[in-house]
Nucleic acid binder design. Structure first.
Lengths: 241, 241
DNA sequence: CGAGCCCTTGACACTGTTCAAGGGCGGTGG
DNA sequence: CCACCGCCCTTGAACAGTGTCAAGGGCTCG
């Protein structure tokens, strides 16, 4: 099932088997896209949305000097640009970080869902608002935390999201981002990310090397990042469906 | 009409008279709330959403030291926490900045709208995604711009939004925020905001004093803030309905 | 008249950036 | 097979931007 991980282990979001099936059949075939490719470019009208089945993608915008700011990271099981359905245009670029497997769904199919399956439509709406809640948390992160706090917060969030879809191994997980990518997510230079990570490593809080993150002291990391996971709506007890 | 300003002058968002009427009738009576009040508190389950008819509100979260980060500013004509409808809980606080006039709508009424008026429901969805697009721009602002750039970007955005609902007078507008509020929106201290504003004033770019903002050189201000208004979906030619 | 809030200004400290150099690693072509 | 190149990470030193602390002035409200 392509959509098996969609909204998995999220509070307040139950899809009935019929709804999941409806969504499943609306999706096109799975497609593999290599790392570091643009998938949808800012400003162009789009008639479909992208569902991410495997790998990592990012949404980002560039400043005038060409420096990039990530505005969202996406992990498997997420609709990556469902926003484009009501908006019809993307206000940012969408690209792959690693090799990914995606499937697209035409906006006509989504319109039909809103007319015939209002509860499923509300669940899709819900998933876009989860993105918005993460955006708000990123605003908080950038506005109020120090460099180390930002990195800590980002890693905590990413662990929760990956764990919810079964992609964490204890407190370790694959995260194929370079330190520059991390910097672009956290509003820091790659040089400073390097310093922050080596300090966190020395302190035993977390070790991020070679695309693998191993959180050594989760409570301490969460404290440093002032991280509270409520906004992710993760189910209290994780259930493997 | 309470909803006269809702989505006014926004591209891709046409409400039919019948839809506007339906929305209008779903709203409760207008209520006045004084400045600096909390309206909805983080974490509490809410059964209604708030529509802002007059005045300014903000959504915000506090860090551990009690310092506040605004994650959204709201101007008249906007649904302030429609997010609470699909999410059922707010992940942040919602409060008034000035005296405001609001009206609430019960979530049962909204559920009925999604079942009986799918196009109106998509327009409501659209309005929540406009919020998300603004969130992304705030991430960009905090992640990539200097102090002066952040303030410039914030003021440009606010002008566009107020102009769209007819609350700008040329390039001037009322904005009853203190410099501390501005700092909480832009991730700066009030001291630094003061310095930034006085520099912008001296340079003739913008004068923000006594709750009134007068933009002296809009192109220069937009350049400084690297501001591009596409994400606001403002109609190309403003139309007064 | 005093209290409290808001704004301004100065001196200083600190966090993070910039610039620069070097090492490790993998892929590619001679 | 080896040399080379490009990318990624690390480290150092100097520097810039912003925060912190502190003091003072203007205004409104009680």
């Amino acid at each position: 099932l392509k959509t098996a991980q969609f909204l998995r282990n999220r509070r307040g979001a139950q899809l009935s088997p019929a709804e999941r099936d409806l969504l499943e059949r609306a999706l096109g075939p799975a497609v593999i896209v290599p790392a570091r490719q643009i998938v949808v470019e800012k400003g162009l009208p789009v008639g479909f949305s992208t569902f991410l089945m495997a790998g990592f993608m990012a949404r980002y915008m560039d400043d005038r000097a060409g420096h990039r700011q990530l505005v969202a990271l996406h992990v498997p099981g997420e609709f990556v640009d469902l926003h484009a359905f009501p908006l019809q245009v993307l206000d940012h670029d969408l690209g792959t970080l690693s090799d990914v497997t995606i499937a697209t769904v035409g906006h006509d199919r989504l319109t039909a869902i809103t007319e015939q399956a209002p509860h499923l439509a509300r669940m899709l709406w819900f998933s876009t608002l989860l993105d918005a809640a993460m955006h708000r948390e990123w605003i908080f992160r950038l506005g109020r935390l120090s460099g180390a706090g930002r990195v800590a917060h980002f890693l905590c969030e990413t662990w929760y999201r990956l764990d919810a879809v079964g992609l964490a191994d204890g407190h370790a997980f694959r995260l194929p981002l370079t330190q520059s990518d991390l910097g672009e997510a956290c509003g820091l230079t790659n040089v400073h990310v390097s310093r922050v990570l080596s300090r966190l490593r020395r302190q035993g809080l977390v070790d991020a090397t070679d695309g693998v993150v191993r959180i050594g002291d989760f409570p301490a990391l969460a404290r440093l990042g002032e991280f509270e996971p409520d906004y992710l709506f993760i189910a209290d007890r994780l259930v493997v469906p």
